[in-house]
């Protein structure tokens, strides 16, 4: 399985040599056929499941930027998701804005909220930061729960699905094109950021704050930037969730349990590893869906999995694969050198 993945990785690399975006375009085109494939093999419900996977991919990839790249503990991400969802829903419902306007505005609002959630990171670290962000995330949920205009107990109902002209994007497969496109773009930009000076600054902060600052990195600024960027992902995911038929939001979709599930995705996939986050989001969403019958044991299983992961596989699935790929490259390089010398 690992060798399959490493082969796959080198195939993608050779494609990328032809043109930087080629692997992305090919992946995108292939994914356009996924709903048909899924419907034919598993049934159309699994397209709905894929849609939810895409939402969680966006969330996990965004969380990875602040947690994985920049090393800032946050338990407030789900609150940002809630803000994105509720803002877009209310803009669409109360002001009749189309999704294509309400979603960007929601992302903007979420960014501001991301800045607020990030503020404690300037002074706090580790468990204290976790507590502070948890407080902020939870207060978003409680705010929604007690404010009738934000849905309170009844929730926000009948949030309109996105439309293009007269066409309403509401079927599972058409919504898939929307969320999948968002997820692919999200993943792509996550790589762009990781490979830029900004990404290196994030990682430097994660590795050593003092060394980063004397290297000329404005640490508070980049920490906040990481929170804001992750908020873009959360806001987008939130808006996509809000408008996904049947278009209903309730504050109990944004509790600590959801946050822990999200953390599990990132940890399982491998903290700081982009593809790991993607794989983690898919694996957790699918397994959760498939083990629903064992609802009684689910929280227990999730807890134990988390502990096992942290102890035995701290780098997650992504870390294991990445190591395999690096090892393989190393071996190849050495073989080349040996051939050269002999």
């Amino acid at each position: 399985m690992i060798s399959f993945i490493t082969n796959f990785a080198s195939a993608i690399e050779s494609l990328a040599k032809i043109h930087r975006l080629l692997p992305w375009v090919i992946a995108y085109i292939l994914l356009l056929f996924l709903p048909n494939l899924i419907t034919a093999t598993f049934g159309e419900y699994y397209v709905d499941l894929a849609n939810r996977c895409c939402l969680f991919i966006l969330l996990a990839v965004g969380l990875n930027i602040v947690k994985g790249f920049c090393g800032q503990v946050t338990v407030g991400h789900i609150g940002l998701y809630a803000i994105g969802a509720v803002t877009s829903a209310l803009l669409a419902q109360n002001y009749g804005l189309p999704f294509w306007l309400s979603a960007p505005l929601a992302i903007l609002v979420t960014c501001c909220a991301g800045l607020v959630v990030g503020l404690p990171s300037v002074r706090l670290e580790g468990a204290y930061l976790a507590l502070a962000t948890l407080g902020l995330g939870e207060s978003v949920r409680i705010m929604i729960a007690v404010t009738p205009a934000l849905g309170s107990s009844t929730g926000i109902m009948m949030i309109p699905a996105p439309t293009i002209g007269d066409y309403v994007i509401e079927s599972f497969d058409h919504y898939f094109y929307l969320v999948m496109t968002a997820a692919i773009i999200g993943i792509y930009f996550s790589f762009v950021i990781l490979n830029s000076s900004t990404g290196r600054a994030f990682k430097a902060i994660r590795e050593d704050v003092i060394a980063a600052s004397v290297s000329g990195i404005n640490v508070p600024f980049y920490k906040l930037l990481a929170f804001v960027i992750s908020a873009i992902y959360a806001g987008l995911a939130g808006a996509l969730f809000a408008h996904m038929p049947p278009g209903y939001l309730h504050h109990n979709n944004f509790t600590v349990i959801e946050m822990v599930t999200l953390l599990l995705m990132v940890v399982l996939g491998g903290i700081g590893n982009i593809w790991g986050g993607v794989v983690g989001a898919i694996v957790v969403t699918v397994i959760y869906d498939q083990t629903k019958d064992y609802y009684f044991y689910q929280p227990l299983i999730f807890g134990i999995t988390m502990v096992f992961l942290v102890v035995f596989m701290p780098r997650g699935i992504g870390g294991v694969i990445e190591q395999a790929i690096v090892k393989r490259k190393f071996i190849e390089k050495h073989e080349e050198q040996n051939l050269g010398t002999s």
Binding site: G43, P246, Y248, N252, N253
Partner: peptide
């Protein structure tokens, strides 16, 4: 029989699964 944990997203997912699958 499926558990929705009293959460709308889970409930909708259950309904979709029951109806379409």
């Amino acid at each position: 029989l499926m558990n929705d944990e009293c959460k709308s997203d889970k409930g909708v997912a259950n309904a979709n699964k029951l109806i379409f699958q």
